[in-house]
Simulated assay, not measured.
Amino acid sequence: MNHDKLHNIIAFTKDLHVLYIEDNFDVREQTIKMLQIFFTSIVVAKNGSEGLNLFNSNNKYESTSFDLIITDIEMPVIDGISMINSIRDTNKDIPILIFSAHSNTDYFLKTINAGIDGYILKPYNIEQISNSLMNIIEKNKLTNSNDHIIHLEDDYIWNLKDSLLYKNEEIIKLTKNEIKLFTLFITSKGSLKTYDEIESYIFNDFSSNNKRVRNLVSRLKIKLDYEIFESIYSHGYKLKYKNFL
């Protein structure tokens, strides 16, 4: 599997909220391990009835609604096709991906009529899942529902909506100038910023020795106990983003 391709897919999928339905314990446990490469938020159901209930209860609230459904077909209580048909009665748009051991024409036609976005035959591998997810992303113009969340190195998270820095779900208290420093780098999408650019943005003027910028970054390093702004010798700084691979 090409690492660049995988990284690009994960950039879209990492924060999607996924509902996964599978009745076989062994298959479910193995598949979850693969899905965790792509997703951090996976809600699991053991049959179609449980999956439908979870979908209906979560999708009442925008903050917990699912972005993608991955399901088996042959399951107890309510089978996968019946579950999908029920979901489609209220939601025509959510992408649905099927993982199934059934390859006969009847199942294919029923799932197509139910409105699915991909069909992978068991046993499957990372590359098959990657390709199907990429197709779904392109077909549905799927975007991250948490695209205001920016993942930084050492598990720091920047919330674009609120201009807040988090670690382990705790807010890190920042000064006004520290907030401006993060804002400058986040809005420029990771590009290197020179000392003069930083000085102009934060202090609205220039200093010949850049001491104020270096002191600001140094104090922040002590506060975070981590060098989240990388010093580029004689040029400036870069913000360190998390690499999920």
Rank of each mutant, 00 (worst) to 15 (best):
N58T: 05
K33L: 15
T105R: 11
V44E: 08
E199D: 05
S218C: 13
L19P: 08
V213H: 02
G190P: 05
A101R: 01
P76Q: 01
K221I: 06
I10W: 01
V18L: 11
N85G: 01
Y201G: 00
N59K: 04
N177T: 13
N168M: 13
H148P: 05
L52Y: 10
S234Q: 15
I129P: 01
E22M: 11
K221Q: 13
I129T: 02
S82I: 02
P76N: 00
A45C: 03
I81A: 02
I96T: 04
I202C: 08
K139W: 07
L133K: 01
E197Q: 14
N85D: 12
N140E: 09
N85S: 10
E74C: 11
F108N: 03
S57K: 11
I42L: 09
N204T: 04
E62Q: 12
D162I: 13
H7P: 00
T187H: 15
L52H: 06
D67P: 11
D79G: 06
D225Q: 10
N209C: 04
F55E: 06
A11M: 03
K122M: 09
H102D: 11
G80L: 01
W158E: 09
I171C: 03
E74D: 10
V43F: 08
S130C: 07
S100H: 01
E29W: 08
K33A: 08
I179P: 05
I137L: 05
G190Q: 04
F185N: 01
L133C: 03
S86A: 13
I87C: 03
I228L: 14
V213M: 08
K238L: 15
E170T: 11
E199H: 04
F39Q: 01
L224T: 04
L16S: 04
D23K: 04
T175A: 09
A45L: 05
D79R: 02
I9T: 06
L239F: 04
I87D: 01
D79M: 03
K161Y: 12
K14H: 09
V217R: 09
N146P: 09
I42M: 07
L224M: 06
L164G: 07
D117M: 02
I112D: 00
Q30A: 13
E227Q: 14
L220I: 07
D89E: 15
K193S: 15
K189M: 09
I96W: 07
Y195C: 14
I96N: 02
